[in-house]
Design a protein around this nucleic acid. Structure first.
Length: 422
RNA sequence: GGAGAGAUGGCAGAGCGGUCGAUUGCGGCAGUCUUGAAAACUGUUGAGGUGAAAGCCUCCGGGGGUUCGAAUCCCUCUCUCUCCGCCA
C-alpha cells in the first residue's frame, strides 16, 4: 500500500495520479490525511497520559519499598483517574488507526510517469514486436484439435476428474510440460536467479502481503478449515519469503525463481476466452521475482523485460510487448509490461507474461526493508514477472509450428524434450 | 488426533511482578596495536510512532485479562520440540 507519509506530503499529486488511473474515490486521499492528523493528535494525548502513569507507578514502587503506604495509596488514586481519562482516548485512537489502515489498503498503486493514459486494453502501447511470423499450411488447426490429434491433452478427462479448466496432460503432452518447466528454470538460474520450491497454499497474511487480499478475494481458491489460500501465482509465497526482514545492502539484488502450479477461480470468464488452453483454473508457471534498492528498480524492470524477451525468441514464437495503460494495470503495479504471443490458428494474441514494478507498494505491506549505505532502514522495491506461463506457450507452439507431418519443436527444447518434433 | 515441555534482540542463552529495551557469549561495525592481516584489548550494535531536537510512547510468538506497575502471573490462539497414535 501507499505510504501515509507520502500521501500527507503530496496529497494533490496522489489524487492526480489516482485519477489518471481512473480511480474514482480520490476523496479517500483527504480522508487519509484527516485520519492521520487525528491519529497523531490522539496518540500524543494518550502518550502524555501514559508517561504520567509510568512516572506514578515508578514512584509507587519506591514508596512501597520505603513502607510509605499512605502516600502510595494516594498515588494509586491519581493513576486511577489518569487511566479513566486515557481510556476513551485509547479507544478513539484504535478506531482511527483501524479506519486509516482500512482506507489506505483501498488505494491502488500510483502509475509511473511513463504509463500511457487509457481505460481499456485497446489503449495499451505496443513497445515492440518480434519473433518469426508463421505461414500456416492448409488444413491447419487450433491447438485444442492438435492436442486431441496427437493425444497430448484430454480436456474431457479433466472434466470428469475435477471440472472444466483442469486439463489432463498425457504422454508426450506431459513430457513437453516437464521439458518446458525444466528449460525455463535453467534459463532463469543461469541468469542469477535462485530456484525455490515454495508451498502451494499460503496463509492470510501472505495473501495480504502481495496484495491479493483484499483485492482479489473471490479469485482465489480458499480452504476454509485451515484458512489457507491456494496460490494464484508463485509471486505470493516467493515474495513473502522476505516478509518482515531487514536485508543488508550487499545481499541485493535478490533474485528468485520458482515453478509452481497456479490456481485461479476465474469467476466471470466465459465463451471462447476459456476454450482449450486459453484460460484454466490450474496451470503451470515459472515466475521470477526481484527485490532491489529503490534507485535501481526501473533499470531492473528493463532487464527483466529483456530476459523474458530472449526466452520467447528462443522458442521461435511471434510476440509483442505492451506497456499497459493506466486503466489496464493491476491494483498493485506502478508499471507493467505484458508479453503476448500470437496464436496463429486462433488468430489472436495471448498473454504469456506480465512483468511489473511494484515499487514499495508490496514491500510496505510486507515490511521488506534494507539498511542503506548511511545505515538508514528503508523499503525495498519488488518486481516480478512470468518466465513463463506454460499453457498459452504450449498452445502457440502447437499452432505455430504445426506441419503436415507433425509438430516441430524449437531448437532450445530439443535436448530437454529428447526429440525435435512430436 | 492424545500427553507433556517450550516460544526473549542476527544467533546462542539469562532474566525474584517495580530502577528491563532487557545480563552474558558469539556474530556485525568502529577504534587501538600491526607494513598489512590474524589475535588481543576498547567502544558500539533491534524495530516502530511522535517531535526541529532533547525527550516521550510502544514492542520479549499473536490476542485478551489480573495489577498502581507484566518479559515475569492467568486465559486463549498459533507455532516448535519430546513421547504415543495414524500415515505418504
Amino acid at each position: 500500500m501507499l505510504l501515509a507519509g507520502f500521501i500527507r506530503q503530496h496529497p494533490e499529486l496522489v489524487k492526480e495520479r489516482l485519477a489518471f488511473r481512473n480511480f474514482k474515490e480520490t476523496g479517500l486521499v483527504d480522508e487519509i490525511v484527516r485520519l492521520d492528523d487525528q491519529r497523531k493528535k490522539l496518540q500524543l494525548e494518550s502518550d502524555t497520559i501514559q508517561s504520567k502513569i509510568n512516572a506514578h507507578s515508578k514512584e509507587i514502587g519506591q514508596l512501597m519499598a520505603k513502607g510509605q503506604k499512605a502516600e502510595a495509596e494516594a498515588q494509586k488514586q491519581e493513576v486511577a483517574s489518569l487511566k479513566n481519562a486515557q481510556q476513551p482516548i485509547g479507544e478513539a485512537l484504535s478506531d482511527v488507526e483501524t479506519a486509516l489502515n482500512d482506507t489506505l489498503i483501498r488505494l491502488p498503486n500510483l502509475p509511473a510517469s511513463i504509463v500511457p493514459p487509457g481505460k481499456t486494453p485497446d489503449d495499451n502501447l505496443t513497445v515492440r514486436e518480434g519473433g518469426p511470423k508463421p505461414t500456416l499450411p492448409p488444413g491447419s488447426a487450433p491447438h485444442w484439435d492438435l492436442a486431441k490429434k496427437y493425444n497430448l491433452i484430454d480436456f474431457e478427462l479433466g472434466n470428469k476428474i475435477t471440472g472444466s479448466g483442469f486439463p489432463v496432460y498425457i504422454g508426450q503432452g506431459a513430457r513437453l510440460q516437464r521439458a518446458l518447466i525444466q528449460y525455463f528454470l535453467d534459463y532463469n538460474t543461469a541468469a542469477g536467479y535462485t530456484e525455490y520450491m515454495p508451498p502451494l497454499m499460503v496463509n492470510e497474511t501472505s495473501a495480504r502481503g502481495t496484495g491479493q487480499l483484499p483485492d482479489k478475494e473471490g479469485q482465489m481458491y480458499y480452504v476454509k478449515e485451515d484458512n489457507f489460500y491456494l496460490i494464484p501465482t508463485a509471486e505470493v509465497p516467493v515474495t513473502n519469503i522476505f516478509r518482515d526482514e531487514i536485508l543488508k545492502e550487499q545481499d541485493l539484488p535478490l533474485r528468485m525463481t520458482a515453478y509452481t502450479p497456479c490456481f485461479r477461480r476465474e469467476a466471470g470468464s466465459y465463451g471462447k476466452d476459456v476454450r482449450g488452453l486459453n484460460r484454466l483454473h490450474q496451470f503451470d508457471k515459472v515466475e521470477i521475482v526481484q527485490l532491489v534498492s529503490p534507485d535501481r528498480s526501473y533499470e531492473t524492470l528493463d532487464e527483466m523485460v529483456t530476459h523474458v524477451e530472449k526466452l520467447l525468441l528462443s522458442l521461435e514464437l511471434p510476440y509483442r510487448i505492451l506497456r499497459l495503460c493506466a486503466g489496464d494495470m493491476g491494483f498493485t503495479s506502478a508499471l507493467t509490461y505484458d508479453f503476448e504471443v500470437y496464436s496463429a490458428a486462433q488468430e489472436k494474441w495471448l498473454e504469456v507474461s506480465s512483468v511489473s514494478n511494484f515499487e514499495s507498494f508490496q514491500t510496505n505491506r510486507m515490511k521488506i526493508r534494507y539498511k542503506d549505505a548511511t545505515g538508514k532502514t528503508q523499503l525495498l522495491h519488488s518486481l516480478n514477472g512470468s518466465s513463463l506461463a506454460l499453457p498459452r506457450i504450449l498452445a502457440c507452439l502447437l499452432e505455430n509450428h504445426q506441419t503436415a507431418n507433425g509438430i516441430r519443436l524449437p531448437k532450445s527444447l530439443h535436448a530437454y524434450f529428447g526429440k525435435d518434433s512430436l
